[in-house]
Every structure is written in C-alpha cells, then in structure tokens.
Design a protein around this nucleic acid. Structure first.
Lengths: 204, 204
DNA sequence: ATAAGAACCGGACCGTAGTCCGTTTAGCTC
DNA sequence: GAGCTAAACGGACTACGGTCCGGTTCTTAT
C-alpha cells in the first residue's frame, strides 16, 4: 500500500521493453548530448532546442522521449538518485538500517545535503514543475522515509506532516541558495539540521 | 544595520515623488486592470500581454512600471503585506509584542498560514524569481523576526539559520499545495507548526 | 507661448518551453 | 522481399515573459 518503486525516476534505462531501434538510438544520442551540454554550459543554459540540434534530432523527439525539461533532468539524475536511495534504505548504518532512528534522521539530512551539493542543480531543474514538485516519486519516497523514522523515534503527533515540514528544509533551491549566495558552509547546514531534528524528535 | 523598511514591497503607492502625469495615470490603469484580471482568471492565467491590452497601454509600459510579473504581484500584495507586517511587529499580543517569545512564534506561524490562505497565490507569484526568492525585503523582514524570537526564546545555536529552516516550512507554494492538493486542513497545519516550534525552542 | 530635453510610450522583437500534425520508417506478416 | 501499420520523427507553430529603441508627450525654463 505504501510501496514506492525504488527507481521510479523515469524510464531512462535501456531496459525498456519493446522500443523501436530508432527510438533507442535517439534516446541514447539525446542523453549523451545532454551530458555534454551540461558540462559545457550548465543546467540553465541547456535549452531543448540546443539539445535537439546537438543530438541531431527534431525538437518533438526530445519532448516525446522525456516529456519536459524536468523529465529530462530526472532521467539524468536517476542513477545518482537510485544510489542515494539505496544508501539510506539498504546501506550501512547510521544512514541505513541498524542505527537508532534519531541517528538515522541526522545521517539522512547530512547525506541529502551532500547529495544536493553535488547534484543540486539537476535536482532543482527536475523538481521545478509548479504544482507537481511533491509528486515526484523520489520525493515521495524520502518523505515517507523521514516519516517512518519520526514514528520510530516515538513521534506521535502527525509525523506525516512533520516529515513534509522537515523536508521543506532540504529543498534543493533553498539549500543551494544558502551555500552559494548566502555563503553558508555545508557543515553549518549539517549542524543546524542535527539541531533541528534532535529537538523535534525531542527529549531522547 | 539590520533595518528593513516596513513597506519595501515596491513603489506601487501614488506617493512616489516626481512622477509624470501620464505615468501615474497608466500605473493606476494597470493596477485596476490587473485586479480585474485576477478576479476573472486567477494569477496563472494573467499574462502580461492581456494586462497591457486591458489597460490600453503597451507591453513595454507594463514592464517599465513593475519590472516583472513578480514585481507586479508584489505591488498588488503590498497593502496586505504591510498590514500583516504591522500586526506581527506592532499589533496586540500574542502576535505582537508583549507575549512570551514562544507564544509569539506560534502566533506568527498561525497568522502567516492564514495570510497565505488568503493571498498565497499572489505571494507565490511574487516570490518566484529563481534565485531571488529570499531577497525579497518582506521575506528578509519576517525571517529576521523569527530569528529574533528564537533568540529571545533562548535559542543559542545558529538562530539565523534555524529561522531560515523554519521559514521554509511556511513557503507559499508548499502550503498551498498541502491545502489544495493534499487536502490538509489549515488547522492541521497550524497544529503541526505549534508542535514544531514548541519542540525547536525546546524546553530550554 | 515656445522650444528643448528628459521621461515615457508602444509594439515589434527575442529566447524558451511545449504542442501539433503531416511525413517517414521499423518491424511484422504473408 | 513486398506491403502494411503503428510507432516515431521533425520542424513549424503557439504562448509567454521579457527587452529594445524610435517616436511621442509632459514639464520646465525662458
């Protein structure tokens, strides 16, 4: 009932069954071109027109494949995202199972901060889609993860909503803004997170 | 050094000195037209072209006056925003001065939730401007307000960053999403906020 | 009143995300 | 291997926010 698939980002992997050969070829070309463009000019300067041109396909093909720019970013992010998901769900403690819930919560925030420092631009572009930001499967998954940790740590008052509140704190856009524009050291973010969740989970 | 002007939203008020008569007339026309369009079709369907047409001015005039769509929204919001600012800075307790810091924090969140339920669409449109979201003077002001309340309540660990974290929770987009899409009752949001800040300020 | 110049005006123009639909092609069947 | 069909293709098109600049209008000084 609460299952969320582990790698639900988008079908960017070639494993997709029954795909025409030209479609597969073009998808591959597009992904290659997209990574090149990202290296060269960053997320914001990557336009769908440039991408189509670089990959040698029509613009329509780009959108058929990925649905939107956000969809493309999700695809590009899917490997890193899956790895991250694997770490907090199945990896070694304190991030993975085995450690006390509060320790896992703390570790989760730290890991997410690190993840966003590395892939935050992609994540920001993948999220931004006005009202669907929170409907991205990957987001649903880690929100639920936080909720379960809150419950395990003994929180009884609306852990679902509290997870959303805490999740707001780890928003890519805000975090990147803090680090890049406000010049907040990542360690400081991590400490504040520790402080926050420790107090929220309460007396421990 | 930490002064933030109370009504810094944007010079939408007619008090602006030395403004040419045609400019003043057009600004007034634009504001009237904008409110009409907002009533008729909502924030998202209000386009700058429609607005210019409705007001009987050129598109360039709209942008010269308000700078951007976000700027227009700020102007439209400025009265409500100023009133809100006045309430939490000078109004009666527990929102205004006189009550214990924690009570004021709780009241602030509740008031902001109410504010966003009423003006959230405008606020969302006014904020959204990729990287400047947190540089809006009004936002700086209430973040600082929260920071000062945290300090007053005895928090010593990075109250500035903690205020930003708590502020993320009161983001227009997230709040509206919770209420409208996830169907969370406003009272539930208020309770969760109470729970959150009570725990964060902690039993000292 | 008039002339000069600053401020303002308007709409053509641009870049971008996303859509549409007539055309092409891969892959299956006979 | 010819023919058929569904899938994929591509690029012209739309909608929107935002910019630019030649022309117009208000204001002020004389």
């Amino acid at each position: 009932m609460f299952f969320v698939s582990l790698i639900p980002i988008r079908s960017g992997s070639p494993g997709e069954d029954s795909e025409r050969s030209d479609a597969a070829r073009n998808r591959e070309r597009l992904l290659v071109a997209a990574r090149e463009l990202l290296d060269e000019c960053g997320v914001d300067s990557l336009t769908m027109d440039k991408l189509a041109k670089r990959a040698g396909v029509g613009k329509g093909t780009v959108f058929r494949r990925f649905g939107s720019k956000a969809g493309l970013m999700m695809t590009l992010l899917s490997d890193a995202e899956a790895e991250f998901q694997g770490r907090f769900m199945f990896g070694p403690p304190p991030l993975g199972p085995g450690a006390p819930p509060l320790d896992r919560l703390v570790a989760f925030g730290h890991a997410r901060i690190g993840y966003l420092l590395e892939f935050g631009d992609l994540a920001r572009a993948a999220d931004q889609s006005v009202y669907t930001k929170l409907e991205v499967p990957a987001t649903l998954l880690w929100h639920r993860h936080v909720e379960l940790l809150l419950r395990a740590a003994g929180m009884t008052a609306d852990p679902w909503l509290m997870a959303i509140f805490l999740g707001a704190t780890l928003d890519p856009e805000r975090l990147l803004y803090a680090v890049r524009v406000q010049d907040v050291a990542p360690e400081r973010l991590a400490e504040a997170w520790t402080e926050l969740v420790t107090r929220v989970v309460g007396k421990a």
